[in-house]
Design a protein around this nucleic acid. Structure first.
Length: 672
DNA sequence: ACGCTTCCTG
DNA sequence: CAGGAAGCGT
């Protein structure tokens, strides 16, 4: 009975150890190298992945000129300021492990980048530099985008093993009355009578999660800051920017003070929040144990404020020292996109005379004139304005920039139930840098919309945000072949201002910006649902609605999605029972001899079902859950509990509590 | 009555 | 994977 295999896991040799699992989350989820579409039809891939793959394949040398290697190690030097939330002291480790982790044979690893990218940029327009910067930024972000998953339990080394292939057909009990008790609202860990845990441990979970959220946001802020510094440094070293030579020094100085400013500012704020939070947590716990909502809201509020102020500070400074683009549209044809045939160009006109923008903000003036005033002149938070690109200006700019959507990015995992949109915003800033507005926060529709070719033009009509982003430059939608995803990029300096309590609505509404709502579910939705199954086996309908924002939900659609997951579960449990019985037949006596690894037949069967293209890096957590499930079945069958007609019910009850949070990326309508 | 689930069938 | 039946909870 050889249940153990040598630990030669091709996929991830590090699985098993908790730290490695953490680090593993930083790995890109997708192995896009396995995709076979032409590069030019990568509408929803991030720009960096385009660049990287093209570089690797040496298909287009021209790309190298716009691609600058951005050393991943540049971000490892930051030290987490001790704010008392040392929840995961692996923060640095998470970041520093990127470069090595990314080289695990991934075709998109930064290590695969040529170092000769620093070539002839002299004659390139500024936007090329900006694109290159964006690409670099994206590259780094992808590496950093992982966040420690909340692990319910860390398991040590597992002995490799697997139930040997069992082809026996499972006789299904012909029983009714096996209904699993209703366990909905898994999306709300703090939910009322959630089946997750008792109120006490729920409270602890809450605290833990909030702390992790705090830390994630702090880390994001730091990364944002580092990004700016890096981008500036690289910008300064580039040639062909003679017009900026005079301001370079000032920029540098400004950037360098930026870090300190952000650090001190945000950490100070964070310290206050944390102090208040502790008190509030205690009092809340004593007074109304179940009222975690107020705690959450309070914390969110304070964090929003802290973030607002810190980000404001950052952008205030940046707006002084980042004359990024002159308001007149620049011609910028990225080499890789110049050949895109079908594209609709939607540009946010540089003309800022939108009706609601009668009053230009100070910073906007600064931005437009490219002057370099001192930050002291900015005494107030920047205005909350989002500019709807005047339709008259459509197609007036021939710039084509693909939306750098991170399609295969390591999962962010700091949402626990209610999405922490604050973090999304920061995440967005990190992903896209200061040149993106929130139109790209959630990518535009997968426009399988057959009926309305110009439907993306309507997207702006839905912008009704109270909290806004000042975007002074180009917004652009590029429609490409294939799925016809729309690309959005806005080359502008956004001034982000979020009001307390507005964060969620803002982010939610931004989710539906530029969104075509689809009537039915597509094969891509099915694929996405299957991948979601790796994270959640029992998604509530609310979760489904959240993660399929491009689907027009009605009763039918909802039940269809629910039915999908029901079918997924059915297959999952059948496999579990099959392999558990096979193990018993094979003479396995101890449940500890049963493990689920990526080499296991069981896993392969599951992976084949939910991830047929094998282009998704299945989270380790799923392996753990699978193993637990297998153990449950094994134990139950071993104890002959299967004589009970409803013996599976107990197992279902256990498994449904193991649901995790689906990464934020899945909320993107064109995630796949 | 409704929503969600499993079970069963095709 | 969808449709339907049926159990269970609200």
């Amino acid at each position: 009975m050889n249940l153990s295999l040598p630990d030669q896991n091709m996929h991830n040799p590090n699985e098993g150890s908790l730290e490695d699992n953490k680090a593993d989350l930083l790995l890109p989820c997708f192995h896009r190298g396995m995709y076979e579409e032409p590069l030019s039809t990568y509408p929803n891939g991030s720009i960096i992945s385009h660049l990287l793959r093209k570089t690797i394949h040496s298909k287009r040398n021209t790309l190298n000129s716009s691609l600058l290697y951005f050393p991943a190690t540049a971000m490892t030097g930051s030290n987490m300021v001790d704010t008392g939330v040392n929840m995961a002291d692996s923060t640095q480790e998470d970041q520093s492990s990127i470069s090595s982790k990314d080289s695990l044979g991934e075709s998109i690893s930064p290590g695969g980048l040529p170092s000769n990218g620093l070539t002839s940029e002299v004659e390139k327009p500024l936007n090329d530099h900006l694109q290159a910067k964006r690409a670099r930024v994206e590259n780094i972000i992808r590496g950093m985008a992982g966040s420690p998953n909340a692990r319910l339990h860390g398991e040590g080394e597992k002995s490799e093993g697997e139930a040997s292939t069992g082809g026996r057909e499972v006789c299904k009990e012909n029983k009714r009355k096996q209904r699993l008790p209703q366990h909905q609202d898994h999306s709300e860990p703090m939910g009322s009578a959630s089946s997750r845990s008792s109120s006490g441990s729920t409270k602890e979970e809450e605290c833990h999660k909030l702390k992790e959220q705090l830390q994630s946001m702090q880390r994001l802020l730091r990364q944002l800051q580092e990004r700016f510094l890096q981008v500036y440094n690289q910008t300064g070293s580039g040639s062909g920017e003679k017009e900026r030579e005079n301001t370079k020094l000032d920029d540098r100085e400004s950037c360098e003070t930026l870090g300190f400013h952000l650090d001190s500012h945000f950490n100070k704020k964070l310290g206050n929040v944390q102090a208040n939070y502790k008190d509030k947590a205690v009092s809340d716990y004593v007074t109304h144990q179940n009222d975690s909502h107020s705690l959450r809201e309070t914390l969110k509020c304070e964090l929003s404020r802290a973030i607002n102020e810190s980000v404001d500070t950052v952008f205030r400074k940046l707006s002084m020292s980042f004359p990024c683009q002159s308001p007149e549209p620049r011609q910028c044809q990225s080499p890789e996109h110049s050949g895109v045939a079908k594209r609709n160009q939607l540009s946010a006109a540089p003309d800022l005379s939108d009706s609601e923008d009668a009053v230009k903000t100070q910073s906007q003036e600064l931005y437009e004139t490219g002057t370099n005033r001192s930050p002291e002149h900015q005494t107030e938070a920047l205005s909350l304005v989002i500019r709807k690109p005047p339709l008259a200006q459509l197609s007036s700019v021939s710039q084509t920039v693909k939306r750098p959507y991170p399609i295969h990015q390591s999962p962010f995992q700091f949402t626990y139930g209610t999405p922490l949109h604050d973090t999304q915003i920061l995440e967005h800033l990190l992903k896209y840098g200061p040149h993106a507005n929130f139109a790209g926060l959630h990518c535009p529709p997968p426009s399988l919309d057959r009926s309305s070719p110009d439907s993306m033009d309507l997207s702006w009509d839905s912008i009704t945000m109270r909290s806004k982003v000042t975007s002074g430059h180009l917004s652009q939608h590029t429609r490409t072949a294939g799925l016809g995803q729309v690309s959005v990029d806005t080359l502008c300096l956004p001034q982000v201002k979020m009001e307390c309590g507005d964060l969620q609505s803002m982010a939610e509404r931004s989710t539906f910006m530029s969104l075509n709502i689809q009537e039915g579910l597509t094969p891509n939705h099915l694929k996405k649902a299957k991948l979601m199954f790796f994270y959640t086996r029992y998604p509530s309908s609310n979760v489904l609605k959240t993660f399929f924002p491009d689907v027009k939900f009605n009763r039918c659609i909802t039940s269809q999605l629910i039915k999908w997951f029901s079918n997924f579960r059915e297959f999952y449990y059948i496999q579990m029972e099959k392999f558990a019985r096979q193990a018993i037949v094979d003479g396995v006596n101890d449940v500890k001899d049963l493990s689920v690894t990526r080499d296991s037949e069981l896993f392969r069967a599951l992976n084949m079902h939910y991830n047929k293209a094998n282009d998704f890096q299945v989270p380790d957590r799923f392996l753990e859950v699978s193993e637990i499930t297998l153990h449950e079945f094994f134990n139950a069958i071993s104890l002959a509990k299967d004589s009970d007609p409803s013996w599976k019910k107990a197992i279902y009850k256990v498994i449904c509590k193991l649901d995790g949070d689906v990464p934020e990326e899945f909320k993107s309508p064109s995630y796949l």
